[in-house]
Amino acid sequence: MIIKRADKMGFCFGVSGAVNLCEKIAQNNKNFPQKMYILGMLVHNKTVINDMKEKGFELIKEEELLSGKINITKNDILVIRAHGTTKEVYNFLKKSDCQIYDATCIFVEKIRNALIEAENKGNHIIFIGDKNHPEVKGIISFGKNIDIIASFEDFLDFKIDLSKRYTLLTQTTFNKEIFFKIKDYILEKYNNIEIFSKICGATYERQRAVEKLASECDVIIIVGDKASSNSKKLFEISNEINKNSYLIENLSQLDSNWFDNASSVGITAGASTPEKIIIEIEKFIRGNFDDKHGL
């Protein structure tokens, strides 16, 4: 059996930065037993989160912080997750004496800053993304006049007021091909919408790589957390091309029946997926199916 990895897969630099920051904090805190907190899931991967818990971090929610259920003192350490957080939480933390480490992805920061700048100019915001995703919740909390849409079809249904100025913003992990459709439609129909796209380059590279992989292999395994937006989009893109596409979080979810009559398997992974999980799955496939197919 031929086993092929996607050209681009696994940790992006934003995730690597957040994980490395927490590992450094944990290492430095060994001799100074301060309480260590992470606001929300550092990244959307259960394995990473469990590793952080083993290193001594406690995960807390925004509402626990704001309600006072979690009492942060000046001796405590708090890490803001890679997806960022809300304006309300940032304002709350400004009044706190705890040690704050902000692991927010640079692309999230840029979109947030673009939103603030656009509204300062008087523009109405059209935001493309998942309204329930923590990244989106955090970004839009910095604005006032925002409409959120989730798809090209949603945009077609959206009523554009030609007397207003708009700025179009996107979630960092939004499907770039759908974004291009929306962009082309805007350029053809409207001249009162400025477009600001900061879809993560690593996300786009992974989306293009899985397109290629899905057309080359019989079976596609996408390794990523079910809560990960970018992992789910990799699956959606792959599944459009190859119906033998499967999203799994770890080796225990792998089904041997998927490889019946397959001569090639493609493996990719979301931007929050640790390499050790990918290697474990790849080793299992190599060890159990190469001989079966006599290759």
Results as ranks from 00 to 15, higher is better:
residue 131 K to S: 13
residue 36 M to L: 13
residue 127 F to A: 14
residue 246 Y to A: 05
residue 238 S to I: 07
residue 189 K to Y: 10
residue 72 I to Q: 07
residue 31 N to A: 11
residue 29 N to R: 12
residue 6 A to M: 01
residue 105 C to T: 11
residue 66 L to H: 11
residue 4 K to S: 03
residue 125 I to M: 09
residue 215 S to N: 05
residue 260 D to Q: 15
residue 226 K to L: 01
residue 32 F to C: 01
residue 15 V to D: 02
residue 249 E to Y: 06
residue 295 L to S: 12
residue 158 F to Y: 14
residue 10 G to L: 00
residue 230 N to W: 04
residue 204 Y to C: 11
residue 293 H to A: 00
residue 231 S to H: 02
residue 277 I to F: 11
residue 210 V to Q: 01
residue 1 M to A: 02
residue 18 A to C: 02
residue 235 F to C: 10
residue 59 L to D: 00
residue 40 G to K: 07
residue 176 K to S: 09
residue 137 K to F: 03
residue 150 A to S: 15
residue 252 S to I: 02
residue 187 L to C: 07
residue 197 S to H: 04
residue 172 T to H: 02
residue 48 V to E: 15
residue 27 Q to N: 13
residue 278 I to W: 00
residue 178 I to T: 15
residue 137 K to G: 04
residue 16 S to W: 01
residue 9 M to C: 06
residue 199 I to Q: 05
residue 234 L to I: 04
residue 220 I to A: 03
residue 220 I to F: 11
residue 265 V to Q: 08
residue 92 F to A: 01
residue 215 S to M: 08
residue 111 I to G: 10
residue 185 Y to H: 15
residue 288 N to W: 09
residue 100 I to K: 14
residue 185 Y to T: 03
residue 214 A to E: 01
residue 14 G to Y: 13
residue 46 K to I: 08
residue 129 G to F: 00
residue 247 L to V: 04
residue 234 L to W: 13
residue 250 N to Q: 02
residue 63 E to V: 10
residue 86 T to E: 06
residue 271 A to G: 15
residue 25 I to P: 14
residue 36 M to C: 06
residue 122 G to T: 08
residue 204 Y to L: 12
residue 252 S to C: 07
residue 198 K to D: 09
residue 155 F to G: 14
residue 7 D to G: 11
residue 272 S to W: 00
residue 111 I to L: 05
residue 97 D to F: 04
residue 269 A to K: 02
residue 280 E to A: 14
residue 282 E to I: 01
residue 189 K to H: 12
residue 257 N to T: 08
residue 94 K to P: 01
residue 166 Y to I: 05
residue 44 H to M: 05
residue 127 F to R: 06
residue 30 K to H: 10
residue 268 T to A: 13
residue 107 F to C: 01
residue 235 F to Y: 12
residue 261 N to Y: 09
residue 289 F to R: 02
